[in-house]
Computed example of a mutant assay.
Amino acid sequence: MRARIVLPAVLAAALITLTGCGADSGADGVATGTSPSGASSPAQPSASPDAEDGTTTEPEVPNALQFTSTTVDGKPFDASTLAGKPTVLWFWAPWCPKCKAQAAETAKVADDYAGKANVVGVAGLDKNAAMKDFVADTRADGFPQLSDEKGEVWKRFEVTEQSRYVILDKDGETVYEGVLPAGEGLAEKVAGLTG
């Protein structure tokens, strides 16, 4: 009987959060690494030389990057190609003014750290046409933008509001999850992982 009352309340609270525009709730911070197991095509995983025979081996794909999706341009996307480098997942919605304010800094970080870190946008909470318009309007087409209309990637990373960053280290462990107004501080967080 109690579950019948509590479950609808929890679901209603989650829906209310999803319909907001990423209000700064002070929920940003460092994650403990317990989060679930990641335009242009993604970067290829960096290969490591095998110490014994000089051949190269692909990095192990962490659970966090074992998913596939589709870009806003309809191209297949395999997150396993992100393995071996720090990865920024930027969760945004096309109608969100805070997301729009983050676009320029996120695109700059993607460009500045190309080859050293991955940056991937994960659009949700709208239709693909609106997502494509957002990417064009904000000039955020220099890095992969996923169309997550069904919210599968959002659910995988337990994201409940847009205007959110999830940053993974090179081993796929979550090292940051939260809001960065206008993308402020993103470059420093990525520099700390690549440096």
Rank of each mutant, 00 (worst) to 15 (best):
T138H: 02
V6L: 14
A136G: 01
A107C: 02
D126V: 09
V153C: 05
G29S: 03
P45K: 07
G74M: 14
R139Q: 15
P76E: 15
F134L: 12
P144K: 08
S37W: 03
T56M: 13
G192W: 06
E177P: 01
L125E: 10
P144T: 13
D133H: 08
D141E: 13
V6N: 05
G20R: 13
G124I: 13
T68Q: 07
P36W: 00
T138G: 05
E105N: 14
T71L: 14
I5C: 12
E152G: 09
D112H: 04
V30C: 00
S69Y: 01
A129Q: 06
P36Y: 00
A103R: 01
D28Y: 07
G54I: 06
A64S: 15
Y113K: 15
F67Q: 11
F134S: 15
A107P: 01
F77D: 08
G185V: 15
G178F: 09
T32G: 09
K155M: 07
F91V: 15
R4D: 09
L193T: 04
G22L: 07
P8D: 12
T68N: 07
L125D: 09
F67G: 06
D171Q: 08
D111I: 01
F77C: 08
A27N: 08
T81K: 14
P45E: 08
L65N: 06
W92D: 04
S25C: 05
E184K: 15
G33D: 00
T68I: 02
V159S: 14
T68F: 02
V72G: 04
L125V: 04
A110I: 05
T17N: 10
K170E: 12
C96Y: 12
G38H: 10
V153W: 03
E161F: 10
E158I: 02
D112V: 03
A47N: 06
M131L: 05
V179T: 14
D169V: 03
F77I: 11
R164C: 05
D28C: 09
A12T: 08
A123T: 08
L7M: 09
G22K: 07
D148A: 01
E58L: 14
T71V: 13
R164A: 05
K170Q: 13
A3P: 12
P49G: 11
D148H: 02
K150W: 00
V72W: 07
G38P: 11
A39C: 05
D24K: 10
C21H: 07
S46R: 15
D28T: 07
A23H: 13
L11Q: 04
